[in-house]
Nucleic acid binder design. Sequence first.
DNA 1: GCAATACTCATCGTATACGATTTCGTACTT
DNA 2: AAGTACGAAATCGTATACGATGAGTATTGC
Lengths: 245, 245
Amino acid sequence: MVDIAFGPSVVVQTAGEIKPGSKSEQAYTSIKARIVQGTFSPGYRLVLVKIAEDLGFSVVPVREAIRRLEAEGLVKFERNVGATVSGIDPTEYLYTMQTLSIVEGAATALSAPLIDSAAIARARAVNEEMRECLDHFDPVRFTALNQDFHSVLFEHCPNPHILDLVHRGWNRLASLRSSTFRFVPGRARESVREHEDLLQLIESQASADTIEHAARRHRAATLDAYLAQASAIPEPLPTSQEEKR
Amino acid sequence: MVDIAFGPSVVVQTAGEIKPGSKSEQAYTSIKARIVQGTFSPGYRLVLVKIAEDLGFSVVPVREAIRRLEAEGLVKFERNVGATVSGIDPTEYLYTMQTLSIVEGAATALSAPLIDSAAIARARAVNEEMRECLDHFDPVRFTALNQDFHSVLFEHCPNPHILDLVHRGWNRLASLRSSTFRFVPGRARESVREHEDLLQLIESQASADTIEHAARRHRAATLDAYLAQASAIPEPLPTSQEEKR
DNA sequence: GCAATACTCATCGTATACGATTTCGTACTT
DNA sequence: AAGTACGAAATCGTATACGATGAGTATTGC
């Protein structure tokens, strides 16, 4: 596993304690972790008092935490009704993936000129790990490695806002994936190949447009694979840059 | 002025009362409005107690509101220190504009196939109003009309997440503009022309790529104009899709 | 038996109070 | 005179308590 400097709102993987911080902070990371890991799956009812006594806190910090999660789109908070983990709707998955494809594409294109050969080597190492992972397939591990791969590329992304949007997308996606939406068989292998293609584009200093398009397609292809297998969605909205060809 | 269904987090323009809602809600909209309008300019220190007694509320709803604003990037909230309106840094303006150019581009491309002739007519009417506005130039009014114009285009945007990102960008931008960053002379006139170009692209059912690129350039050009006049920024980062031509 | 109304309970919303932390000013020392 | 240490004020952080609101349930009338 490559050592990566994660952004502020990246997926929480170590549930252990790092530092106390404020209780509001703790509540935030704790609840977020459970949502992302799937302990609180979409539709789960988050009752303030229950969570509060579960964590040993009062309700006020928990409220704050939930408000923050609401702003990130992970939960829905209705007045006098309560909070529920959002994203039962299949269209949520679609929108999240579509948005993610756009911001990841932009982030990759912005980062590409700043990626040095050492970083490319590290990214390639992660991708090889993913390739090895294909045989004994573990979705959780694969997803983690996938995020590692892209995190390496985004290491020197000049625009922190874009990066933040990527991280939010990843969190939402993790929340959705852990419950309803499953990996499409065979897609993982394609993904590894596309990663290699992407690295070569970056190495060859391809135009920003080319890289952006490739990165965007990389994510969009996963969505397409899902749409192709799951006909549960009534009328699939056009994934961007799709209908023209 | 065209009647537009604004999204949930769009710039607040009428400071009047709409409905009581929760006090947390009121505090949120109230503080947000002041930030966007420039009453609280970047760097302004938001003291919980002062705001609370100013609004006649307690501190708890105010805390919540500030947390939400923090999640939107409008304020920075440090533990045991307090909240300040974010965005004094010129790079903030750059990043915000860059991000906005990306999400607006995507939103326009996604919306384009769904825009009917009636909507185009309305957008054109707004643009004509902007043209008339050029003589007796009023930045506030011009910005409002500009948002109206794009809002018409985004009316049937299929992806609410993208739309949300656009609105957040607008809010951040308003916060920044009202203080440090001024309009670049002559840019407004170009903007009106680009709007017309954009409408013609949509009418002629140009490819999604073409429309996305045009919409992105539309925003990026404003950033370029700013960078060209203000040499305050040490080394301007490349705006996406820039360096290749 | 069904529907409409009233009631109760779970849960959220906010105020107040107090403890914790930081910051700033002041005095003392070198 | 400059730096440091101490202390007080300002501000944030959280707990507790109570009021408000909506949902679910029982009850009563038809």
